[in-house]
Computed example of a mutant assay.
Amino acid sequence: MPVDHPESLPAARRPHRPDDRQPSLLEPGASTDPYRLRLYRLLRTDYPLAYDPGLGAWLLSRYPDVAMALTDPRFTGYPHDGAPRGPLPAPLGLCRGSVVCTPLPGDAAAPGPAAARARAIERTAYVLARRVTRRDRVDLVAEFCRWLPAGAAAAAGPSRPEPRALPPGASHPGPGGGTGDCAEHPALRQRALASFLANMLDAPDLLAAVRGGPEPAGLLHRAWAETLRRDPPVQIVLRRTRTEVTVSGGTLPAGEPVACLIGAAGRDPARFCAPDRFDPLRADAEPLLTGPAGCPAGLLGRLEAEHGLRALLAAMPGIRWAEGFRPVSAGLLTRGPRTLLVRPS
């Protein structure tokens, strides 16, 4: 892992307030594509610590700074300063900032609530895929991604463990095994699923490996993790400083709101080789970007991605992009493809 940022600037004791050249997250075009606009790149290279008056928060865009803000006790959840913290945050892009992230009870491979949810996801995915297989063109976002999380939750039914089975301080799970806020945002998993399918459809060799029989060990698991790094559905996680903290570009004052730019950190060239490339087999994968094992949002999202892709390939072995279509993602706080037009055969 590189130690120095390739374009690091001399650190000042105090960060500078914005000048006329500093980009803003609220400037025109930023929500359309901060990657192609080079907004994230400019922030990482020239303004690693910058105050965005429109957002009302300090921006952190380099991977080491974002990782520190998410894990260091000198930062706390925002806006709830008493937010619980663990050794790792919930999956970046699947949980919003300050949540209780309690592992799902049971194991997906053993009898129990998690196994029931996995079976429900698999059944729902195959039903949805078969419904659209005879069409000339299908929008996977409208007719698959938006329905799979909600349909699987309904098929699984309520799954509430006894309160004594919950870790101390955890909120009571809701129907389907979700806990607190962590698994209660299916819209985020919909965006993550859409980004995952877009990445896989853009990679014919990976699709062939999945379609052709037993896939390479862990391929889909790693493809899901790589999607969370490259295309996180939540782009910004908010924190607040408890005390002064030195980061790239200066020192954050105490008591200040901080916006961790997850999308920028996930494509930091100082941390990831060829960061814009979707590469599930990359050697520099980072578990910080996928969250703790057993996190409800991460587990459910991964199961929906893996079973969803397998179901689509089983129902539509020749699935490909519709003629002339290219997926386009949009959004500033949450991000993902709004449309995925494919030809089933």
Rank of each mutant, 00 (worst) to 15 (best):
G250I: 12
G250S: 13
G250H: 09
G250L: 12
G250E: 12
G250D: 13
L252I: 14
P253M: 09
P253S: 04
P253K: 05
A254C: 07
A254M: 09
G255L: 12
E256N: 01
E256M: 11
E256L: 03
E256Y: 04
E256K: 02
P257F: 09
P257S: 09
V258T: 11
V258G: 06
C260Y: 09
C260L: 08
C260G: 11
I262F: 03
G263W: 07
A264N: 11
A265I: 14
A265E: 11
G266S: 08
R267S: 14
R267Q: 15
D268Y: 07
D268F: 08
D268W: 09
D268L: 07
A270V: 14
R271C: 13
R271N: 05
F272D: 10
F272W: 12
F272T: 14
C273L: 05
C273G: 01
A274V: 04
P275N: 08
P275Q: 07
P275L: 05
D276C: 00
D276T: 08
D276L: 12
R277P: 00
R277F: 00
F278I: 10
F278K: 07
F278A: 10
F278N: 10
D279C: 04
D279W: 02
P280K: 04
L281C: 06
R282Q: 13
D284G: 06
D284Q: 05
A285Y: 02
E286D: 15
E286N: 15
P287G: 01
L288W: 05
L289R: 10
T290A: 12
T290N: 01
G291V: 13
G291T: 14
P292G: 08
P292I: 10
P292M: 04
G294H: 00
C295E: 01
C295A: 15
A297W: 00
L299N: 00
L299H: 04
L299V: 15
L299M: 14
L300I: 14
L300M: 13
L300K: 00
G301Y: 09
R302C: 15
L303G: 03
L303W: 02
L303D: 03
E304R: 01
E304K: 02
A305P: 01
E306G: 04
H307S: 14
G308L: 05
G308T: 05
G308V: 07
R310N: 08
R310C: 13
A311H: 06
L312R: 01
L312N: 02
L313R: 10
A314E: 15
A314G: 11
A315K: 04
M316S: 12
M316V: 07
M316T: 11
M316W: 06
P317Y: 10
P317R: 12
P317F: 11
G318R: 13
I319M: 11
I319L: 15
I319K: 00
R320A: 15
R320C: 14
R320Y: 02
W321T: 03
W321S: 03
W321Q: 03
A322T: 06
A322V: 08
A322I: 06
E323S: 15
E323Q: 14
G324F: 07
G324L: 11
G324D: 13
F325I: 03
F325Q: 03
P327Q: 05
S329Y: 01
A330S: 14
G331H: 09
G331K: 07
